[in-house]
Amino acid sequence: MALVCMSHSPLLEFSDPPADVRAAVDDAFNSARGFVKDYDPTLIVSFAPDHYNGFFYELMPPFCLGYEAVAVGDYGTQSGPLDVPIPVAEALSQAVLDRDIDMAISRRMEIDHGAVQPLEILFGHIAAKPVVPIFVNGVAKPFTSMRRIRQMGTAVGEYLATLDERVLVIGSGGLSHDPPVPQWATATDQQKAMLLNGRHPTAAARDARQQRVIETARQFATGEADIRDLNPAWDRSFMTNCATADLEQIDAFTPDQMAADAGNSAHEVRTWLAAFSALRAAGPYRVETSFYRPIPEFIAGFGLMTAR
């Protein structure tokens, strides 16, 4: 088993960080591509969040495994179906349930840039490899405990370790960031309608949502946006816990404190915790590459780690 955990950002193609920062990010991506090319996985299990494009408050599980998955194509990412090996997905969900983890399933999961970007960056196409997608809620209160996310990742990894496959687990999201995603408690009636079920918006509605984020990023980079600042110390501490396999330390994280310390979307680090827990379930691991930069133009503490 091997692992790639990485921040994603819908702003990768819509914002212009300084040239040296862009070059450093590109170098990190190239290193990760080399890592997965050398490993040549035969199966990918992707832990990723959603940003009210596939999962909504009409039904919001803490995590959900897809037997089929279709990308919605937001922010110019690829749209269309993933190559999900349905028998593997079915067996994995049953194995996790047998370990007393209540894994929801979807026979037609819709995914957005959070799940798509790593596949595009690493493999060039979302259907280049067989992928089992696992949605991990990182945006919608209430949140399950970090301990439960760790246990879920462990259950997934225990089963994956029994397969005759070269498995790559991906964790997509984080680190500290606070983009302008509506919160139910303060949302307008129109926003609540979208949060409840905003599936398949018109092109104009999707563009309006995206432009709001793009404009916030521009303001944030110039110090004008009214969102929580990035927290590099928090990011680096979390990455250290992952690198040293000290994952139980993360059990103490609470949703309110995570939001206060690192922004409302810092909950996306749940995908990293699930992925590293899955990797650790297969045995001791070592981190091969690690990259971190706070990048206001992406509204993200931007990190990337590979391990095996």
Rank of each mutant, 00 (worst) to 15 (best):
R212F: 04
R212Y: 02
V213I: 15
E215Y: 03
T216K: 11
T216V: 14
A217C: 08
Q219W: 02
A221R: 06
T222S: 14
T222I: 10
E224M: 12
A225F: 05
A225W: 04
N231Y: 09
N231V: 06
P232H: 13
P232Y: 13
A233R: 13
A233E: 15
D235I: 03
R236A: 05
R236V: 11
R236S: 02
S237N: 10
T240L: 13
N241D: 15
N241Y: 13
A243K: 10
A243V: 03
T244L: 10
A245C: 06
A245W: 07
D246N: 15
L247Q: 09
L247R: 11
E248A: 15
Q249C: 07
I250F: 00
I250M: 15
I250D: 12
I250G: 00
D251Q: 08
D251S: 09
T254P: 00
Q257S: 10
Q257K: 09
A259G: 08
D261P: 05
A262D: 04
A262P: 02
A262I: 08
G263Y: 07
N264A: 14
S265N: 12
S265W: 03
H267D: 05
V269D: 03
R270G: 00
T271N: 15
W272V: 08
W272M: 11
L273P: 01
L273D: 01
A275W: 02
A275I: 05
A275E: 01
F276V: 03
F276I: 06
A278V: 11
L279V: 09
